[in-house]
């Protein structure tokens, strides 16, 4: 039996009166590359935000390797949705990536040469080294996404949460990103991705969670990625048209 990286018990989250997530129980084993799929408004981003402590749940608990998030934040890296920040902010690509080192630096301490080197390596890994001094608004959407990915890579975490990293990127960037994700899994990391494109699930991921306010199913892609679960999640008769 594999170790459990993330364990969620009875998690319920609501913004106003209606629950966005209802009574979620979920165990994410260590070392999987997992997609969270579900229709719009299913609570996919909310689930990630609740795990990361950005949102306060109404009930339930989340543990990372058996301890609450706040004690384990050094083990976790986060790639938010690209649209969540102002890309006209006066900052360079390198400075954004450097933020990935702030967590281990802690309060007040400034990043030095070591942090800069780590940031440059991460930029290299995502193929963005030539753009390190660009102001971030001068980058294309795909490049901005790679900057976010680089920032998470710098954190050198054990668990990576990514909110729609493939949204609005071209094919080249998508392939570059998925290759990095697969590398992370090979290195024994756990990667959890909010994903929209059902067609690519079997190709990219080995684990999947179906979510629509409630958890519909979770498990290995080859066992549970089927018409039955897709129909339960999306409410329409869904046919997987990928295998032959």
């Amino acid at each position: 039996m594999k170790k459990i990286a993330v364990k969620i018990d009875d998690l319920t989250v609501a913004y106003n009166y209606k629950p966005v997530l209802w009574d979620i129980d979920l165990e994410i084993p260590e070392g999987v590359l997992m997609a969270i799929v579900g229709p719009n408004g299913a609570g996919k981003s909310t689930l990630i935000k609740a795990i990361l402590g950005i949102l306060k749940p109404i009930a339930g608990s989340v543990t990372i390797y058996g301890k609450p998030y706040i004690k384990q934040h050094q083990l976790v890296a986060y790639v938010p949705q690209k649209g969540s920040v102002d890309w006209d902010f006066p900052i360079t690509a390198l400075d954004v990536v450097k933020m990935g080192t702030y967590g281990s630096l802690g309060w007040i301490k400034r990043p030095g040469q070591k942090e800069k080197k780590a940031a440059l390596e991460a930029l290299e890994k995502v193929g963005m080294l030539p753009f390190k001094n660009r102001q971030i608004s001068q980058l294309s959407g795909g490049q901005q996404q790679r900057i976010f990915l680089a920032r998470a890579l710098v954190q050198n975490a054990s668990i990576y949460f990514m909110d729609e990293p493939f949204q609005g990127v071209d094919a080249t960037t998508e392939i570059a990103i998925i290759n990095i994700l697969k590398e992370l899994r090979k290195a024994g990391k756990t990667v959890i991705v909010v994903h929209h494109d059902l067609q690519t699930v079997p190709e990219y991921f080995d684990w999947v969670t179906f979510l629509n306010v409630k958890k519909i199913a979770t498990g290995p892609v080859k066992d549970i990625f089927n018409d039955d679960n897709l129909t339960k999640t999306y409410g329409i008769n869904y046919k997987v048209s990928i295998q032959e």
Binding site: L52, G53, I54, P80, V85, D86, R151
Partner: peptide, 10 residues
């Protein structure tokens, strides 16, 4: 720049 991210870093 990114308040949510800041929170996730502890």
């Amino acid at each position: 720049f990114d308040a949510d991210y800041t929170k996730t870093l502890g």
